[in-house]
Nucleic acid binder design. Structure first.
Lengths: 260, 260
DNA sequence: GTTCAGATTTGAACGCGTTCAAAATGAAGC
DNA sequence: GCTTCATTTTGAACGCGTTCAAATCTGAAC
């Protein structure tokens, strides 16, 4: 029914009497309970049956409501599934937190973050591809670059900021201020590899971490060398232009490689 | 820009008595004609109606066959759409060819390749997201890392090899042998940005090319400096391990390809 | 208690990609 | 001509995500 070039798909026009699709606030207690119950059921079914097995009909049936009710609270299956990402991020944070306590080197901190990321997501590797598929769609609310996933994305970047800040780095380098963005992008690339990784236990992904982390960190340390100034300086200016000053109001934002 | 009656460009040979889903060879003349006709119609409808508007039913109707016939020749809509990529690549090659004739600098050659890439794909930017969505799925035959898209991927990498070879580069650097792989990856990142780019005419993507190409090329030239050896050498060794020995047939950055 | 305008819930229905048993066609031997 | 067999074609049917007009419920105002 939709003509091409459809308008922006709204996402969140959170006026006070907005439809309950976006968040839990502004709902009657009963409605909030129904919404939460549907979401819980959806995540459970997703765990049990995978992405394709978790049909809207099944979720609704298990939750004891009609399919229409699920769509009353969540604009689409994708929105419903987005809770999955948030949960994954929370689990990941809980897992890395202790490992980042001690003030270790950047190498150790980076490797710890990525390894725990893989470990946390391992149970869902089987259908990570299906998830990534919808996440890659620029129009999907699950896209790591979409407005809808902004909070999750920011939290993820904040993690990398703490990774950088906690490492004993010479704060002299102007790279320091943007490093967490670059590491976030690096993480995206690793996740992209992990998603495609069919080796047993995704062992190749772990190996890729072990082999790339030292290179990345060596590069970071080298960046302050004057020889690299003609590369580092314009690169930082570039980031300033493209990521720095919140560009357009529109959804399109920055490049990258995969979801969180 | 509108070659509706192009030859299928199916130069690659499939196993002789393979099922008709894979390629055009090994079919009775009539069957081959039917297959080609369905493919042509599909690409035309795709151009006219976009990805979502090009339903299998519509394609079949316009081709004058039943939907089942389309599925007899093509395992899925994705496989059918794959011809689109091949056509795009052919158009791109025709567009860059002349620009690469003169032996210009690496900067010019790289920028020319990417700009023509964007120009060639511009008419389809509207539904590139929908295409990319299915392409991102590791299980999809449209994934740039999948076995099904191996030929197209290899051709694309060959283009970057010619970009590197044609530039007046000091062949001394061991980076030289792997550079085309890295540039292919760089291209992937740029395309990802382009897909998400909502600026008018994708002008930001062009700007991103103009600003990143000099940085990339400066980095390439710097790579032979001894100071960077501790980064370049392990990086190349890493590529050797992950892309080099080709654990399976196609030499992508993908690990083992046995389907789960 | 009655009314009535929301908020909430329902489930049949739509169009999609895909499947598959059955029908139609073609080729080869008689 | 007829029979036999594989190749090709068909279209109804399935399950999916999604939509929506109608039904039901809720609670404030009377």
């Amino acid at each position: 029914m939709k003509p091409p070039d459809d308008p922006p798909a709204d996402s969140r026009a959170e006026t006070p009497e907005a439809p309950p699709g976006a968040s839990a606030s502004g709902l009657s207690p009963k409605a909030a309970r129904t919404r939460a119950h549907i979401l819980e059921t959806a995540l459970r079914v997703l765990r049990e049956r995978g992405y394709e097995g978790a049909t809207m009909r099944l979720i609704a049936e298990e939750a004891g409501v009609a399919v229409g009710s699920a769509y009353y609270y969540f604009p689409s299956k994708d929105h419903l599934i987005q809770g999955f990402y948030a949960q994954l991020h929370v689990d990941h944070l809980a897992a890395v937190g202790p490992l980042l306590e001690g003030s270790k080197s950047l190498d150790e901190r980076l490797a710890a973050v990525m390894r725990t990321k893989f470990e946390t997501a391992a149970p869902y590797h089987g259908f990570s591809g299906a998830l990534f598929k919808t996440a890659a769609d620029p129009d999907s609310p699950l896209s790591p670059f979409s407005a809808d996933s902004g909070p999750t994305r920011d939290e993820s970047k904040a993690l990398f900021r703490s990774v950088v800040d906690g490492a004993g780095l010479r704060k002299r380098s102007p790279l320091h201020a943007k490093l967490h963005e670059l590491l976030w992008l690096y993480q995206m690339g690793l996740i992209l590899y992990w998603i495609h990784d069919r080796s047993p236990g995704q062992e190749r992904s772990y190996r890729l971490v072990d082999r790339t982390v030292p290179i990345v960190c060596r590069l970071v340390r080298l960046a302050s060398n004057p020889l690299l100034t003609p590369v580092v300086k314009p690169a930082l200016a570039l980031m300033e232009e493209f990521c720095g000053p919140a560009p357009r109001a529109h959804g399109g934002s920055e490049p990258g490689t995969s979801p969180s």
